[in-house]
């Protein structure tokens, strides 16, 4: 029961993007399409889970004074692995995520969970925390990405979902940078209203 809580808290209650406002740079940058959002979300989830495992394993070996550089090394290694593997086996996704994969290193969610959770907990809760937070991040990205892609391109996952007349001249601002800010702001506001209502 407790473990389930560790896993599920990342979805809504402590959603890294909407509630904790962490990792906003990738959130704003890659959500111009759902494909990118899923790719980024899953890559970050992978890195987050792996780094949580390693960090919770070696937490007793690391002197607290140098814990941050150690965390960064662990995270950066996993990011590089993801980068290389994606480049080799999914070149298309790698091409569109391009710049953002190295940015996972500085994604606050990952360092944040390492510092706040994995370095204080055992392996199993850390895995669940990493998975939950990662999936919560992915969920947020997909929600924002869906809204942006449907409004800004008339498509969802590359499939046409709006009438052709709309696709011809869609609301471009949604897939541009300002659209990302506006839509994320509105979603945060909406979630605040829902939370307040409880």
């Amino acid at each position: 029961m407790n473990l389930w809580k560790e896993f599920s808290k990342g979805f809504v209650k402590e959603n890294p993007v909407f509630i904790m406002a962490l990792g906003l740079c990738p959130t704003l940058a890659v959500t111009s399409s759902v494909t990118n959002a899923i790719g980024m979300g899953l890559a970050a989830t992978f890195v987050l889970t792996c780094s949580n495992v390693i960090i919770s394993l070696i937490k007793d070996l690391i002197p607290s004074k140098i814990r941050i550089p150690c965390f960064i090394v662990v995270i950066a290694s996993f990011v590089t692995i993801v980068d290389l593997v994606m480049n080799a086996y999914t070149p298309e996704v790698h091409k569109s995520l391009g710049l953002f994969i190295p940015l996972i290193v500085v994604n606050c969610i990952i360092l944040g969970r390492a510092e706040a959770f994995a370095s204080k907990n055992k392996v199993l809760p850390s895995i669940l925390d990493g998975l939950g937070m990662g999936l919560g991040f992915t969920l947020a990205l997909v929600v924002i990405g869906s809204i942006r892609e449907v409004l800004g391109a008339g498509q969802w996952l590359g499939m046409n979902v709006m009438p052709l007349a709309y696709i011809k001249s869609p609301m471009l601002v949604a897939i541009l940078a300002p659209g990302a800010f506006i839509i994320m702001g509105l979603l945060m506001g909406l979630i605040n209203i829902v939370n307040k209502g409880k």
Binding site: P170, L172, V173, A174, L176, G179
Partner: peptide, 10 residues
């Protein structure tokens, strides 16, 4: 500004 960013050609 919103319209210009969204439908520049229009």
């Amino acid at each position: 500004a919103f319209l210009l960013a969204s439908w520049p050609s229009l």
